[in-house]
Nucleic acid binder design. Structure first.
Lengths: 111, 111
DNA sequence: TAAATATATCGTAATATTGCAATATAATAG
DNA sequence: CTATTATATTGCAATATTACGATATATTTA
């Protein structure tokens, strides 16, 4: 049918999948990178930087905000976004945990 | 509309987004975890383990194989999948590079 | 208050993803 | 060769994502 059967999986599996989803678009990767570089970003700047429409950028910012890795503060007429340090660390650890699980020992019963 | 405008972004941004896409489904997270734990997995076992149809599991395995993080070897009538160590390391570093970029220095011009 | 500036949301079209039944393909056993 | 067993592919329906124009909302300036 087209609906992810979330109920078949653990909360952790669903969470990690959702976080990965936030990274699963080049525009959002670009936004994150811009943010890491400049320590702040504004919708309007990104429109120029990325070449996508204002509404589209806003949508991507919301996706990143929804999973908590960025946060925004009103700054005059515009909104300044930045990394949420706490959540960033959390997400980083989520991924680390998975990646560190693999120890390349020997090619025993492997292909 | 509705198509990701890949041409607006760098190869690196598109690559990372595609890798993230592979992680962006709880079933694929579960498959990866099962693989990390057992060092090998077989479509049929996963059907029982995850509770999804055989065709669906096969589809998810293909998605993981397409981005290279798993590989399969024919083993009698079935196919044994396992982590591709080289690619795994590569993908791990992709993510590390992004996550390590953020140094939580001070809340200066941030929100 | 009205105009200007900037972001968010709505509505909609195009495309992508998810899931599964049915079927095709491949390897082994008899 | 035929039946069995297991995986892959196809076709289709349901839902999700992406993108953008139009519009709503919010803040500042005149």
């Amino acid at each position: 049918m087209g609906v992810t059967k979330s109920d078949l999986f653990t909360k952790e599996q669903n969470d990690l999948a959702n976080v990965a989803k936030a990274f699963a678009h080049p525009a959002r990767i670009a936004i994150i990178q811009y943010l890491l570089k400049s320590n702040a970003c504004i919708n309007g700047h990104l429109v120029v930087e990325l070449g996508l429409a204002q509404a589209t950028i806003s949508q991507h910012l919301r996706a990143l905000k929804d999973i908590g890795i960025i946060q925004g503060a009103i700054e005059g007429v515009s909104v300044s976004y930045c990394i949420n340090p706490k959540r960033w660390e959390e997400v980083k650890n989520h991924f680390s945990n998975i990646f560190e699980l693999y120890k390349n020992p020997n090619q025993q019963n492997c292909c």
